[in-house]
Amino acid sequence: MILEINNVSFSYGSIGVLRDVRFSVSPGEVLAILGPNGAGKTTLLKCINAMLRPETGSVLVEGHEVLRLAPSDIARKVGYVAQQSEPARLTVFDAVLMGRRPHIRWKVSERDLMVVDAALKRLGLDSLALRYIDQLSGGEFQKVNIARALVQEPSLLLLDEPTSSLDLKNQIEILSLIRRVVCSHRIAAVMTAHDINSALRHAHKILFLKDGMVFAVCGSRDVTAETVEAVYGVRVEIHHVGSIPLVVPLDGQGE
């Protein structure tokens, strides 16, 4: 197991957000957290790398209790791609090199440069290396953010709605990229998602969060219409296109 979460609860003041959340993720797996707005998806993600501190429970990454590690130690194990990142006036190379920050003190080492170089090549960004990131398209910029998280050399990748502002082509490209990297490096990824169909298509496992509790965790091929209906309160049918499940809402058509 790369990630094991047990009994995690979290609240903002008196408002409970997460209750007794437990699940685990194995190497080579992408898990998508789905649920209605306000179900606690982003909160859960931030509890995993201790950006928010759960009140109870434990978060184990490769057997280490994350809540007891220093921030830069966590950053060497867990990469985080925020929902919003600001394009500063940095080159692509420097923006990705920043991901080595948990490993750098005063001086950038040759290995740091080599790791960044390799990551840029793997994501097809090497031709843009010296371009400023405020001149990139949305898809390219998101790849930079993912590359930055990858050069942290984490065993776990957290992504907060990685495709929320991207067009269809970039969505597919980014999500299959994540899946490919996770499989080839035997790391794990946890991402929050809004688009249930793209999550079913690209994630191995789905975690449904409802009212701060885990409603169901299952393989993406095993999601049932009943589960989706119970979580979102919308009547749906599940069709299979090839082996890919497709959720089709039944309400709200043709009015």
Partner: peptide
């Protein structure tokens, strides 16, 4: 100068910086 990577990280957004282990 010692903090320059931290400042770079904050330039990319508070959450990204936290994800990189910056307090």
């Amino acid at each position: 100068q010692y903090n320059s990577w931290n400042y770079n990280a904050i330039d990319a957004g508070d959450e990204t910086a936290r994800g990189l282990g910056v307090r």
